[in-house]
Design a protein around this nucleic acid. Structure first.
Lengths: 233, 233
DNA sequence: TGCGTAGTAGTAACATGTTACCCATGGCGA
DNA sequence: TCGCCATGGGTAACATGTTACTACTACGCA
């Protein structure tokens, strides 16, 4: 494991970030509602400094917006934002998949296979939370294989902004099985060290699930396919 | 102009970021040297809070590293880092150029033409500082045309990390003229709304100047072409 | 009723105090 | 000579105080 760049206990700032994320997931923070930074600091029993920093970072990723002298709001990304995000993901993850296919060694494939199995199990259990978790792990493994740390960081940030939408979307669309199936060609291509095929499969996967996300967030004014064409092309 | 999201005076944090950038450019901060956050705060006559935040942000972009309980250092990206950065730029800017070609209107082309002229003048003057400035403006215009705000932000961050290297590299290689010439096919393609050609030209440009940068930063252990192949592919 | 305006609550941004921690150094004993 | 540990300088992270704004509110005037 090349990990462990931060073996020391998470700072209050980091814990606050996590707390806000959790709060968003479990409904403590309702998207659109206005919240006070001071009160949040009180609730978490920390001072305003780490809370302030945490919110600034979350705002950078687009997860919350800060309204000057008013407080902060949790933001659900709209269809346009999601289209932008998916455009970046496609641009970065498609070539990353190709690289991964070229560079994967036996132990890498084993790790991928493990995630695949976990995903499959989650499908059988109908557990979309676990499914999304392993889905992200799998994409993370591929990015790690590609070896570009900048890409990894960028995608991690984007993921944050979409996770919330993903949860609700994928559930209502009942397509765990389909999304799972889309991963298989990617893994097969990696298995065969076929970079071209891996890229194609990844693109297809991102397009498919991306449009699913877009549809979940689209209003009647949004033309999902047109948005996709405009941003991702 | 859809700009002006921050019409208010820059905060001390922002001014500190700028101060550090300037300091790096004009040699006040020597790469590799260790500097004290406290002393920097004193020197700028501000408190530690904004300086701390500024350095944290700069550290995120990779421009400086923070050594725990020791201070901070300015980092010159190595060949590997540059390869990673260029990989991201290629992945994002090549499709962006295609989009830009599709969407450019008359006034957009006029703006691009203005930058081209300014670049040309800078070439004639042998002024690589001005040249790089307009080069960045031109790339910025294309990204704006493509319309993805995430992409814009990401590239802006990457630029920061490379600017320093670019300055010294492009001067020694005396290739202002060549780099300028590489932009022309891109602009021609945009003029003709030829997305494919724009993408090709942008890729070629980024590959050429990217390798130039890599060579400038490479040690005897680095094989530039191999690095490029590994990361950008 | 409509509108400007003083008043008020609440905050962003910054300054400063505090604590625990890390690292380098030098003395000391084996 | 080498390794160990106490010590002190210096910092990261956090807590808290302070100030200048900003957006809302309500009041009074037309």
């Amino acid at each position: 494991m090349p990990a462990a760049p931060t073996p020391r206990p998470p700072s209050l700032t980091e814990r606050t970030i996590e707390a806000v994320r959790d709060g968003i997931r479990n409904g403590t923070f309702v998207p659109g509602e206005l919240y006070s930074v001071y009160q949040l600091a009180d609730r978490l029993a920390v001072s305003r400094s780490p809370v302030r920093e945490a919110l600034l970072r979350l705002a950078e990723t687009g997860m919350v917006t800060i309204e000057k002298n008013r407080g902060f709001r949790v933001v659900l990304p709209g269809a346009r934002e999601l289209a932008e995000i998916m455009a970046v993901r496609v641009a970065l993850e498609v070539p990353a998949a190709a690289h991964a296919a070229r560079r994967a060694g036996p132990q890498d494939r084993e790790a991928l296979e493990k995630e695949r199995e976990a995903m499959q199990q989650a499908v059988l259990d109908g557990d979309e939370g676990t499914f999304l978790l392993h889905d992200q792990h799998l994409h993370g493994l591929l990015l790690n294989l590609a070896g570009n740390s900048r890409t990894i960081r960028i995608i991690a940030n984007l993921r944050d902004a979409t996770r919330l939408v993903g949860m609700s979307t994928i559930r209502t669309s009942r397509s765990l099985e389909e999304v799972y199936a889309e991963h298989l060609p990617i893994l097969t291509a990696v298995e065969h060290s076929d970079a071209e095929a891996a890229a194609r499969a990844m693109r297809r996967h991102l397009e498919s699930t991306g449009k699913l996300l877009l549809r979940g967030a689209a209003t009647e004014n949004d033309d999902v396919d047109r948005l996709w064409e405009d941003y991702v092309g």
